[in-house]
Design a protein around this nucleic acid. Sequence first.
DNA 1: GCCAACGTTGGC
DNA 2: GCCAACGTTGGC
Length: 156
Amino acid sequence: MSQIPSAYWLVKSEPDAFSWAQQQANDIEPWTGVRNYAARNHLRAMRVGDLCFFYHSNQGRQIVGIVRVVRAAYPDPTATEGDWSAVDMQAVATLPEPVTLATMKQDPALAGLDLLRQSRLSVMPVRAAHWHHICALGGLPDQARPQRGKRSPPAR
DNA sequence: GCCAACGTTGGC
DNA sequence: GCCAACGTTGGC
């Protein structure tokens, strides 16, 4: 199993339904319930070792943590019909300073971020430059920051 | 609670 | 294949 991310992503969850605290408590969690074709296709493009921002939608409206893909796409066990996929995610790091939607909206360095353009998409890619910029805003020092081609830090 | 954005459904 | 109606998401 690779520790090297091939791409970066952002996944959303309403904290009422599934929160960052629950993700951390469970450590590894199946990411199920996606019922949108664009989001599903992004799930299917994820590789083991890829990293994702964990975003709290609705309540919070901020990026609160980072998860790693530990199992690539497989049939979503919660789907009773249709062709849907799930992946497994593992908690990697909490952002010392959550990065709010308001902050991201007003930051010129994050212009073009999918989160700001397509607010309804629940799984989306994140450009490497945006990834590192958001990590810095979140207070993750370089050494603790998961990045392409380097070892990822241990879960905490 | 309201509403804009956008995806899906179904009639034609 | 087009498009109007409808449902859902999620910011405000």
